[in-house]
Design a protein around this nucleic acid. Structure first.
Lengths: 157, 157
DNA sequence: AGCCGATAGTTGACATGTAACCGATCTTCG
DNA sequence: CGAAGATCGGTTACATGTCAACTATCGGCT
């Protein structure tokens, strides 16, 4: 036994093969760089963070004009506390509002403001172009399909 | 024009098709959940963060026993300041040491301690098992290969 | 030799995430 | 009805990242 990390082949644990390691390390690096690039574009073009965009995007869907904080946190795979903080910042900036839920006094309902709607309308075209430039348009249809399959398998639980 | 986000088809910007959106949103959710799961395992099993593991892993490679901070930051795709702070924490915990580079007085050389070596040796088997469980073993060899290809295309610049 | 822009690493100010806990409210069941 | 426990959203304490500024050093060019 000598080397540690992901690299060596041993018999005890099932270490990663070269192909498996390529996939894993590739995923790790892709994650870093892709997110960096897309988020940088979004911040430069629209003054929004990835998180802002995600929240606005969900709220702007036709049937989700008003959403409970808890439901939003589930959709975003976020902790409630993190979302609560983030909504506070977005509220400060005038992008969303928070009001007591009339049906459940424990709850809070989040809604877009006019400014929030404008913000995502303005941001969307550039953001989609950025996602295309950095990811989508670099891949073949078959690769895109496989990426979707992979995500499905990983998420399935 | 009505809906905003990633969802609608328009003519002006090239919005995402259903397949493209599946890939992009799938990637986004996979990123969140996969990282969460792997990092949780690593923290529970070995008391290390993903970042700790990455640093230790590189330093434990045979020819990289001593590395400049700058080179480490390039390999990890990290900012220097972030790495500097992280190394400070790891140094506190006795996992690595930092010393002046004898060849370039501006530089700092990072090295593993005995405890650092032990830490990654202990952590590696469980971590590999975790990566297998949450990602590798869920995919076919063809999917793994495609994932590697995708990462390569995205990183290539 | 000596100056000056480039480079290395650290640090201060700040942004933003999580985990643990809290008060308010709902819901279930005796 | 009314108490026990679950649930909701938020807050406090803390971890950890970025950007910009800073100090020290290097190295090419005159």
């Amino acid at each position: 036994m000598s080397t540690i990390g992901y690299r060596e082949a041993m018999t005890e644990p099932r270490w990663l093969t070269a192909a498996e390691m390529r996939a894993w390390l590739g995923y790790r690096r892709m994650r870093r760089l892709l997110d960096l690039r897309v988020n940088r574009d979004l911040a430069a073009d629209a003054g929004l963070s990835e998180q802002d965009y995600d929240v606005l995007s969900i709220l702007s869907e036709p049937h989700d004009q008003r959403l409970r904080v808890g439901e939003l946190s589930e959709r975003l795979l976020w902790t409630r506390s993190g979302l609560s903080r983030h909504l506070g910042r977005m509220e400060q900036r005038g992008l969303v509002t928070r009001d007591d839920d009339p049906d459940d006094a424990r709850g809070t309902v989040v809604a877009l403001t006019a400014a929030g709607r404008t913000a995502i309308q303005d941001a969307a075209p550039g953001h989609v172009a950025s996602v295309r430039r950095h990811l989508i348009d670099r891949l073949t249809p078959a690769e895109l399909r496989t990426l979707g399959d992979i995500a499905e398998k990983v998420l399935d639980d």
